Amino acid sequence: MFLRESLMLAAALLALSAPVWAAPAHTFDFGQPASAAQASRSVEVVMGDMSFDPKTLQIKPGETIRFVLVNKGQLLHEFNLGDAAMHARHQQEMLQMQQSGMLTPTGIKEMSHGMTGMDHATMGHGMKHDDPNSVLVEPGKTAELTWTFNKATRLEFACNIPGHYQAGMVGKLTVSQ
């Protein structure tokens, strides 16, 4: 009896100490990731210290856009496609990453696994930054995100690093004919 209870207690403790794994791949009702080769056009978005230029984008349903993201600011920024509710949820995830020390003002700390966050690998504590509708861009760097928009909708592109969205780092993206 003692052995069985000890094994059950050990199994329970092991389960509690295991990392929390990310949910299965996200699906998005407004479209899906695509390869740059599929893009019908490229759109450059410049990230300033708390701004996007341009602030609004017009896209047609069915169009595949290659976003070229240029961070001319002094801080780490994110380009994330979604609606306001998605951004609110993602801001909470980003806050957890910041509180754990993974996000710094200018980048992602290298983890003890020998992997950097910029390769979107697991970043300690089971947290990841690998959503297909999002990319982090360090100061002075350029990144890309290619997306096919499948229906008319109103979205936002935003930086969800804690405080950035609230400081105005959000733009409007309208998908319409």
Results as ranks from 00 to 15, higher is better:
residue 2 F to Q: 12
residue 3 L to Q: 13
residue 3 L to S: 07
residue 4 R to Y: 08
residue 5 E to R: 14
residue 7 L to Q: 10
residue 7 L to T: 03
residue 8 M to H: 10
residue 8 M to D: 11
residue 10 A to G: 07
residue 10 A to Q: 09
residue 11 A to T: 10
residue 12 A to D: 15
residue 13 L to D: 13
residue 14 L to T: 13
residue 14 L to V: 04
residue 16 L to S: 09
residue 17 S to L: 11
residue 18 A to L: 13
residue 19 P to D: 03
residue 21 W to C: 01
residue 22 A to M: 11
residue 24 P to M: 01
residue 24 P to D: 03
residue 26 H to I: 00
residue 27 T to F: 05
residue 28 F to A: 05
residue 30 F to T: 03
residue 30 F to C: 07
residue 31 G to W: 00
residue 31 G to D: 03
residue 34 A to T: 10
residue 35 S to N: 12
residue 35 S to A: 12
residue 37 A to W: 03
residue 39 A to S: 09
residue 40 S to T: 14
residue 40 S to H: 14
residue 41 R to Q: 14
residue 41 R to C: 15
residue 41 R to M: 14
residue 41 R to I: 11
residue 43 V to E: 12
residue 43 V to N: 00
residue 44 E to W: 02
residue 48 G to W: 15
residue 51 S to K: 04
residue 52 F to E: 03
residue 55 K to Y: 07
residue 56 T to E: 15
residue 56 T to Y: 06
residue 56 T to G: 01
residue 57 L to K: 07
residue 58 Q to G: 12
residue 60 K to H: 12
residue 60 K to I: 01
residue 62 G to C: 02
residue 67 F to L: 06
residue 68 V to F: 05
residue 70 V to N: 13
residue 70 V to H: 09
residue 73 G to H: 01
residue 73 G to I: 08
residue 73 G to K: 00
residue 75 L to E: 03
residue 76 L to P: 11
residue 76 L to N: 03
residue 79 F to T: 05
residue 81 L to K: 08
residue 82 G to L: 06
residue 82 G to K: 01
residue 83 D to F: 07
residue 83 D to Y: 01
residue 85 A to W: 07
residue 85 A to S: 13
residue 87 H to W: 08
residue 87 H to F: 08
residue 87 H to D: 10
residue 88 A to E: 15
residue 88 A to W: 04
residue 89 R to A: 10
residue 90 H to F: 14
residue 91 Q to G: 11
residue 92 Q to L: 14
residue 93 E to R: 08
residue 93 E to A: 03
residue 93 E to V: 12
residue 93 E to Q: 08
residue 96 Q to L: 09
residue 97 M to V: 05
residue 101 G to H: 05
residue 101 G to F: 09
residue 103 L to R: 10
residue 105 P to R: 04
residue 105 P to Q: 08
residue 106 T to N: 07
residue 107 G to F: 08
residue 111 M to D: 02
residue 113 H to Q: 05
residue 113 H to D: 14
residue 113 H to L: 12
residue 114 G to H: 13
residue 114 G to Q: 09
residue 115 M to P: 06
residue 117 G to V: 11
residue 119 D to A: 15
residue 120 H to P: 00
residue 120 H to Q: 09
residue 120 H to Y: 02
residue 122 T to C: 05
residue 123 M to I: 15
residue 125 H to S: 12
residue 125 H to W: 09
residue 126 G to K: 09
residue 127 M to H: 14
residue 129 H to R: 02
residue 129 H to W: 01
residue 129 H to D: 13
residue 132 P to L: 04
residue 132 P to Y: 05
residue 134 S to L: 10
residue 135 V to R: 14
residue 137 V to Y: 01
residue 138 E to D: 07
residue 140 G to R: 02
residue 146 T to K: 13
residue 146 T to S: 15
residue 146 T to C: 08
residue 146 T to F: 14
residue 147 W to N: 05
residue 148 T to V: 06
residue 148 T to E: 02
residue 150 N to M: 00
residue 151 K to Q: 13
residue 152 A to L: 02
residue 153 T to H: 03
residue 154 R to F: 04
residue 158 A to W: 04
residue 158 A to Y: 05
residue 159 C to S: 12
residue 159 C to P: 12
residue 160 N to H: 00
residue 163 G to I: 00
residue 164 H to L: 04
residue 169 M to W: 04
residue 169 M to N: 10
residue 170 V to P: 02
residue 174 T to Y: 06
residue 175 V to S: 10
residue 176 S to N: 15
residue 177 Q to I: 00
